[in-house]
Design a protein around this nucleic acid. Structure first.
Ligand code: SF4
Ligand code: SF4
Lengths: 152, 152
DNA sequence: TGTAATTCCGACAGAAACGGTCGTATACTG
DNA sequence: CAGTATACGACCGTTTCTGTCGGAATTACA
């Protein structure tokens, strides 16, 4: 169902960790993995992917590791998820393989596409910086504002 | 990744279909399945689940079938997804089985919980009625309003 | 130059979730 | 009673997810 993968989850944690240690020129995958208990080899691959997508900069060799490619507030959660989990779409009627074959007859794909846009917007509005600024166990008001308009 | 299951997808379609045919006292699972090309037996189980959750009312026997238990605008997409896919949470640190064991050390679960709330809010703001009012291929402005506030 | 640290890359395997089918029981209509 | 339809549980093949392994290429440093 509507759940992000642990990989994306790990990726966000790692990025946040990097954002919290701007003094370090680079942190190795193992450093980050140990800090949270994430499987090191798995995290390594995640960081590699993130690097390939241009969110991180890597440096091999001793004292090597990863660092944010941009300012933490210029990296959105959306980009991270996109990089790790691939194209973001809440329905199956995306492209190519294992797509939904009843796309032509489907009448809800268009409204759902709007929902998709909205959720993507939410994710885009969240930066790594936002995640790093933890604290604040404030209860937060849950006003039900108009978040998405399907029609018009 | 962040994708709803086809079951939930089918459920939404079915509900929308029922909402579009208020004149019928009841529509059988097969009727709906045929209308869209959904596997009949699968849809049957979905509708049963929806019934168990109180979103539909069922009636066995000839001329039986399903009908909305409430007005279409009183049923949210969130409820449908909840009913079919189970508890809604974008991360794995929910409850019980296969939960995330590094929950204690995790520092992003709290901010992510807010994101979760926000997305749930979006889903809750969408009713079956909204889906049924198709048409309107309006381009829709994509203003990037403040959709979620992580802090304070 | 050599060694250790570290990124890079692909393949693979176990486990879970998903999508779908089947068989059967039960309920209602006429 | 016969036919239609829901109700329910078991099952199975496929895909996706999570994690591991093995090795190659890079870099720092002694
Ligand atoms: S086409 Fe309709 S049914 Fe198929 S995936 Fe897209 S929305 Fe779901
Ligand atoms: S605890 Fe942290 S890592 Fe584990 S699922 Fe929740 S958010 Fe993801």
């Amino acid at each position: 169902m509507l759940k992000l993968t642990k990989k994306a989850d790990y990726g966000l944690m790692a990025l946040k960790y990097l954002a919290e240690h701007p003094e370090m020129p680079a942190l190795s995958a193992k450093d980050v993995a140990d800090a949270y208990g994430i499987p090191a080899q798995l995290l390594a691959k995640i960081l590699q992917q993130l690097t390939k997508s241009g969110l991180l900069r890597s440096h091999a060799g001793m004292n090597g590791g990863y660092a944010l490619a941009r300012d933490a507030r210029e990296i959105s959660a959306f980009e991270v998820i996109l990089s790790i989990d691939g194209p973001f779409f809440i329905t199956s009627c995306t492209k190519g393989k294992t797509g939904c074959e009843l796309t032509p007859s489907c009448t809800i794909k268009e409204p759902l596409a709007r929902v998709n846009e909205t959720i993507a917007g939410v994710l885009k509005s969240i930066s790594i910086q936002d995640l790093a600024e933890h604290e604040s166990p404030a209860p937060r008001a849950k006003e039900s504002q108009q978040l998405v308009s399907l029609n018009r």
